[in-house]
Design a protein around this nucleic acid. Structure first.
Length: 627
DNA sequence: GTCTGTAATCTTTTT
DNA sequence: GATTACAGAC
């Protein structure tokens, strides 16, 4: 037995050594999933596989980096050359190589959710102008959900419409029109949205020559968090593994929490069913103490593969249920308790507060600030989603792909005197001129608002002259945007710091295309370097795969968690899995906090589904602090 | 056409 | 309780 595998238990070691061909590892929470993948990587390298022959698909970029770093530490082998990242990242890489196969130019840009929403809004307005005013027609936000769901589930617009909101079924024809036009617009503007990345990558791989070339590269494919893949992603890994047929996926079906974006935990079952698939199970829970594991076992979601977790860590402390009155009191209790824990010697970095929705954390944020407890928020608005960073990106996107109207509009509107109308005219002009002209002369011949146009033109052409991405941004910042921030935002100082950080990040890149796609598809770039000892606030979704000594789950009351929508649509199964993910995060202490009189008016009729009422009383300690 | 203040309109989870 | 749509002033 290789001694570097000594650190694994029997189940883990078997999974590392014997998984080959088509394999699935069913892993309970806290059973060392990451460890198994890391050791699998290590084992492959030890047996002579080159990093460039491995494809590692993870749920976030950070997860991939972590595994690679650990494998490097354990082996001393540099993993330079490995292909690793999220599905979107990998699809982007493939699509850059074969863009023309699907009618794109290789310099295509990627729309984030907000961009794609505004493009849908634009198309929606145009189509509705033709058909005349329609009352209660779905908003652009709803349309986007419908389109996205249809794409990610590879189903018809009709069934997506039924799923998202059946009351719009009468408008099916017009919605189809908008969808068609939206697709055409994207194509014309040489840009793709998040869903297109997956769709087009799969489309490209239908070509047998390309499929052979691409799938030959990857002797081994490893996929983490397989329970959260959708049908497109399943297709993609099937195509990429079609030559060597070594594909190892790791899954916990009880933790599938992304069905809203098409994830189907049935992928796990379907994958297992195919002949010759090897199945491994690792069920020991190394993370949580026994009283927590007992609660976990009692809370296994319905409709998952039956499992019983074994605990190895012991403790006298049961999970604690706290009944508070409302959000205010909940916040007060939680921050007081956190202070107490820190006094007792708990490391703030090892304390986290989890919630179903961002909005549930507002009162707590205020309370924590009052008590001077430092905290960091994992979810919420991302760095690249802030207005000021998006402004800078818009300039860069114009240089990268001048056909894209959304960025032209965004840039134009930064200048006083230019509103929606002029900006839209300008974008149309730019779109028409972009094919024949260089960026600097695209605006020639546009006659409105001469002064501002001249300034835009000058900025763009000088940015183009600068050779590195970082210099391009620096130039824009110093000659225009720094002043703009000062004139328009009271909190301009923080925003300026963000841009300065962006300039630093850009130093690592020598290609504009690379920089832009990493910003939209590779969220690791954005993770702010947090200094000092801070507790963590995050949604349960973002907490997936993470662990802390102490975890508070707040607002565990009907209407908040389970969410109001889930109760409306009677979609409790997924909420159960989200709750399951939440209670499986702590190592030592779990607090479940609920409100007796929540502000949400829904709790009164929704009382029927209360997670806390389903918990056997002897498994927890209950305290009532409400008035 | 643009800008600003007020009324109406929803409220989830994310690459 | 924040975002968006709209109306009216410039």
């Amino acid at each position: 037995m290789e001694d570097y595998l000594q650190q694994l238990d029997d189940e883990q070691r078997t999974a590392v050594l014997k998984s080959a061909g088509r394999s699935i590892i069913i892993a309970g929470p806290g059973s060392g999933k990451t460890r198994v993948i890391t050791y699998k990587l290590l084992h492959l390298l030890k047996t002579g596989i080159k990093p460039s022959e491995i494809l590692l698909v993870t749920f976030t970029r950070a997860a991939a980096n972590e595994m690679i770093d650990r494998a490097r530490m354990l082996t001393g082998i540099d993993l330079e050359g490995i292909t690793a990242g999220t599905f979107h990242h990998i699809c982007n890489l493939i699509l850059r190589r074969y863009a023309r196969k699907v009618g794109l130019f290789p310099n295509f840009t990627i729309l984030d959710e907000e961009d794609s929403k505004s493009l849908i809004k634009h198309v929606r307005t145009m189509v509705l102008e033709r058909t005349g005013e329609i009352k209660h027609f779905p908003s652009h936000g709803v349309l986007q959900k419908i389109f996205s769901y249809a794409t990610n589930t590879m189903s018809t617009l009709h069934s997506a419409l039924l799923k998202i909101n059946p009351k719009y079924i009468d408008y099916e024809k017009i919605i189809e029109d908008i969808y068609r036009e939206y697709t055409i617009e994207k194509r014309n503007q040489n840009c793709v949205d998040y869903d297109d990345l997956l769709v087009f990558a799969v489309q490209v791989l239908q070509d047998s020559d390309i499929r052979l070339r691409e799938s030959r590269k990857y002797k081994w494919i490893l996929v983490d968090e397989f329970q959260d893949t959708n049908i497109l992603q399943l297709n993609l890994i099937e195509l990429l593994s079609s030559f060597h047929k070594n594909i190892v996926v790791v899954a916990d079906d009880s933790q599938s929490i992304y069905s809203f974006r098409g994830a189907r935990y049935e992928n796990v079952r379907d994958f297992m069913k195919i002949d010759g698939t090897k199945l491994f199970k690792i069920q020991t829970n190394y993370r949580s103490v026994e009283p927590i594991v007992k609660l976990i076992n009692a809370t296994i979601p319905k409709r998952s593969v039956p499992k019983v977790l074994r605990a190895v860590k012991f403790s006298d402390q049961k999970p604690i249920v706290i009944k508070t009155s409302d959000r205010q009191e909940e916040a007060a209790y939680v921050s007081k308790q956190i202070l107490r824990l820190i006094e007792q010697g708990f490391d703030p970095e090892e304390i986290a507060v989890l919630y179903r929705s961002h909005s549930h954390s507002l009162e707590l944020q205020i309370e924590l600030s009052k008590q001077q407890i430092d905290f960091k928020i994992l979810s919420g608005i991302r760095f690249t989603e802030t207005a000021h960073v998006k402004d800078i990106i818009a300039f860069l996107r114009i240089i990268q792909n001048p056909r894209e109207k959304i960025s032209w509009i965004r840039v134009a509107r930064l200048f006083p005197g230019i509103g929606a109308k002029t900006a839209s005219n300008l974008a149309e002009h730019a779109y028409g001129a972009a094919l024949q002209n260089d960026v600097s002369s695209i605006l020639d011949g546009f006659s409105q608002k001469k002064g501002q146009i001249l300034e835009i033109k000058k900025l763009l052409s000088e940015m183009q002259e600068e050779s590195t991405v970082s210099d391009k941004i620096s130039f824009l910042y110093e000659s225009f945007y720094q002043q703009y921030l000062q004139d328009n935002y009271p909190d301009y100082k923080e925003r300026q710091q963000d841009i300065e950080r962006l300039i630093e990040v850009a130093l690592r890149y020598n290609s504009l295309e690379h920089f832009l796609s990493d910003l939209t598809v590779n969220e690791d770039v954005q993770n702010n370097v947090s200094k000092g000892q801070k507790i963590t606030l995050t949604t349960v979704h973002q907490a997936k795969g993470l662990e802390w000594d102490v975890v508070f789950v707040i607002s565990v009351n009907p209407g908040d968690f389970p969410s109001y929508y889930a109760l409306m649509e009677n979609n409790i199964d997924e909420e159960e899995r989200i709750f399951y993910v939440a209670i499986t995060r702590p190592r030592k202490l779990l607090y479940l906090v609920t409100q007796q009189y929540p502000s949400s008016p829904y709790m009164y009729w929704a009382k029927a589904v209360d997670f806390l009422q389903k918990i056997p009383e002897e498994l927890v300690d209950i305290y009532d602090t409400s008035y």
